[in-house]
Design a protein around this nucleic acid. Structure first.
Lengths: 344, 344
DNA sequence: TATAGACGTGCAAACGCTTGCGGAAGAACT
DNA sequence: AGTTCTTCCGCAAGCGTTTGCACGTCTATA
């Protein structure tokens, strides 16, 4: 009772023709007579024949699969990103092989091995927080598996990536606050070494300088994103010599913690003190005191764009533009954008 | 400049032995002499040989891949679930092929086709909201691809599934409110046809009856989950004849909307009116007036458990317990559980 | 010394499909 | 009638691996 699935061979036997004819008939190859073509297609339908993709993958050395490695699937940012990735992949007739690194370098390496074994055609990676050693990415070059990094980009030359520029969004945020009349603007930034932190700071300095408010380092504090450190930073800012009337926070979660702290200090939100943050998570619609605005980073779009460029790379490759010799590297920067929340 | 990856054949040639010997040597087969075994392994390392999985997949008719189809990757529940799935799969040496249906039946069908083509070993599905026709699932039986459904289960017999029982959690919620002194307890439930809605209602009735509070249908309203309908329901409940002192809401989002509405009506949250909801999303930590408690549905664990049972099924299959003849169907029910939020 | 076992290795088929090439048959030309 | 095209189809190789089987060559046993 094998119940084997029908193969091309089976069809050939039943019709007393050769497998090659069947194969070509199914592909609508021009050199097959109309008569046999329809006979084959008819029987294939009857038998509910479906090509064995694993055989084809093997035979063609191509899997129409793209590997995706990201730090944490359950985080809002990445789950939006994977959604964009899946949609774009599906549109391009690719499927998605998924792995999460949990921000562990080891797991990241393992996943790359797995992906390599599965012979994915290309790779989409947002690197783990703790990755400093990039050799496992470099190692992929010899396999000719293109990688497109997104959001979290390793600091190595000659790579493709898609990212979202936080500088501009930050400038927009500061300018927005400026036009609202704020002159002393604080910032609760993220962990110091993070590139994301640096970008925000750059934007901050740039905008403050342009607005002829001088940059006061005392108004910018780092935190490690824990509630405690956020509260501490908030308190320090709000009791400092120059008390800010507005604060830009590293992300929405930080904003929410900071808001709580400010309320604890009997300050009226959006009156005594305003907040602007990054991410624009859906939850900001629901909190009693959401930040006035958020810098949107478009995770869905980032994922989508990254996937599209990867697919483009794959097509170039199969078009024989082989070997990254005349290599141009995609460096795609989406612009972040300030989104105002209805003051409602 | 082919830059072909090294194959088993290449090793064989360089060592002047046959491919079968190389293959066995690499697998540590006992019938290979120690001497050649080490020679082979040594050369394999030098050449950075890696087996071509696509060839193996093809040869063995097994891909060590499980397909996952769920409605919406960016929803908190499912992103937690996929996280659990990925972790469990990785632990069992499987990889995850991902697809999202966007709650469209057509896309769901397409995805199943794709998965089938990719010859996934098994399938994990949470069905789309609008799926009424289950033929595309039935069609998979003849391919002998086991499916484990989770969370959203089709109403057909003889399937494996993992789900979370909402009845118990609801009972816990009501009991909790009862011990807190509440006697008039309302419910804002979800869309009427959803099984999830029915389960909550069942739990509600069961608990109310057990507590010797009689079941008053006027205290239970349905909504379609939009903010407007939630607000309307809330208002109706709170202005009704018997005004509840506590309300159980379909999920956290509903709770947040209801809270807003209650505040608009100048009621003091947790004093005039208490809320309990389902899901226990992280955001409840951040809102100013979170529900007092949530019924946790353990999406991560559901995903994990579903994956584990699928893997078990696959192992049974390869052990020749073939053909779902002596079929026992897994029906795994996780118990939901009430989680109290610090009144902080 | 013949013989059975162990040990180590190679042959070849099989998995399902694609594709370059060659060949047979007929049609259309000179 | 002979030649050249078309048109249609089959042969067979090849993709990289695994694995049942047979074939040696020793060593230990009778």
């Amino acid at each position: 009772m094998k119940n084997q699935l029908p193969t091309i061979k089976e069809i050939a036997k039943q019709l007393n023709i050769s497998v090659s004819t069947v194969s070509r008939a199914l592909h609508d190859h021009k050199s097959i007579g109309l008569r046999t073509k329809t006979r084959v297609q008819e029987l294939a339908r009857q038998l509910q024949y479906e090509p064995n993709q694993t055989a084809i993958f093997f035979q063609q050395g191509k899997t129409f699969t793209i590997g995706v490695i990201l730090p944490e699937l359950s985080e809002a940012f990445f789950s939006a990103a994977i959604s964009g990735i899946e949609d774009a992949a599906h549109k391009g007739n690719y499927t998605v092989l998924l792995g999460q690194s949990h921000d562990s370098v080891d797991k990241e390496k393992q996943l790359i091995e797995t992906m390599k074994k599965h012979r994915v055609d290309g790779l989409l990676i947002s690197i783990s927080k703790n990755t400093n050693d990039y050799s496992h990415f470099e190692a992929l070059r010899r396999y000719n598996i293109p990688i497109v990094f997104f959001d979290r980009i390793p600091k190595i030359p000659n790579i493709h990536y898609v990212a979202c520029n936080m500088v501009n969004g930050t400038v927009q945020a500061i300018n927005f606050l400026f036009t609202k009349g704020h002159r002393i603007i604080g910032m609760i930034n993220g962990p110091e070494k993070l590139p994301a932190t640096k970008e925000r700071l750059d934007g901050y300095i740039q905008a403050m300088t342009k607005s002829r408010l001088k940059y006061d380092p005392a108004l910018v504090l780092n935190c490690d994103l824990t509630t405690e450190s956020v509260c501490a930073a908030t308190e320090k800012l709000l009791t400092g010599k120059r008390r800010p009337t507005a604060i830009v926070t590293f992300n929405d979660y930080v904003a929410l913690d900071a808001v709580q702290q400010a309320r604890k200090m009997k300050l009226k939100i959006n009156k005594d003190i305003c907040f602007v943050s990054y991410a624009n998570l859906p939850l900001t619609n629901y909190t009693a005191f959401p930040p006035m605005a958020s810098v949107e980073q478009f995770p869905y779009q980032q994922g989508q764009k990254a996937t599209e460029t990867l697919i483009e790379l794959l097509q170039q490759k199969s078009n024989g533009d082989a070997d990254n010799s005349n290599a141009t590297y995609y460096k795609i920067i989406l612009e972040s954008q300030l989104v105002l929340h209805d003051g409602k």
